[in-house]
């Protein structure tokens, strides 16, 4: 498997680490236990298009959001994950 890192170009799977589903968004401070529980544990088991977090630890150390099809393993898009996992909190 190969991932096209937006910073480094096309690289081999071994340079990357998989984290998991990129969809859940970390609740803001003060969220209820149930909301945080869902964020930490609840995942869809998708047969098809997914959005995943991958870490380019063997390259630029960027966290990436990878659109991948779990049936075909085809990767349709890769972008920096910056901000993807959090509600923009007030500074």
């Amino acid at each position: 498997m190969r991932i096209v890192c937006p910073f480094c170009g096309e690289r081999e799977l071994g340079e990357f680490t998989y984290l998991g589903d990129a969809k859940p968004v970390r609740p803001v401070a003060g969220a209820s236990e149930d909301e945080v529980f869902d964020y930490v544990y609840l995942r869809d088991n998708v047969a098809g298009e997914t959005s995943e977090h991958w870490y380019h630890g063997g390259g630029c150390r960027a966290w990436l959001k990878v659109a991948r099809n779990t049936l075909t393993h085809e990767i349709s898009a890769v972008e920096p994950a910056a901000g993807a996992g959090a509600r923009q909190a007030v500074k």
Binding site: R61, W63, A82, G83, A86
Partner: peptide, 19 residues
């Protein structure tokens, strides 16, 4: 050592990009 770096980068890039 490596895992904490990865975790902190996740926090920095993904969870708290406003910092």
């Amino acid at each position: 050592a490596g895992l904490v770096m990865q975790h902190l980068e996740f926090c920095r890039q993904v969870l708290f990009p406003e910092l």
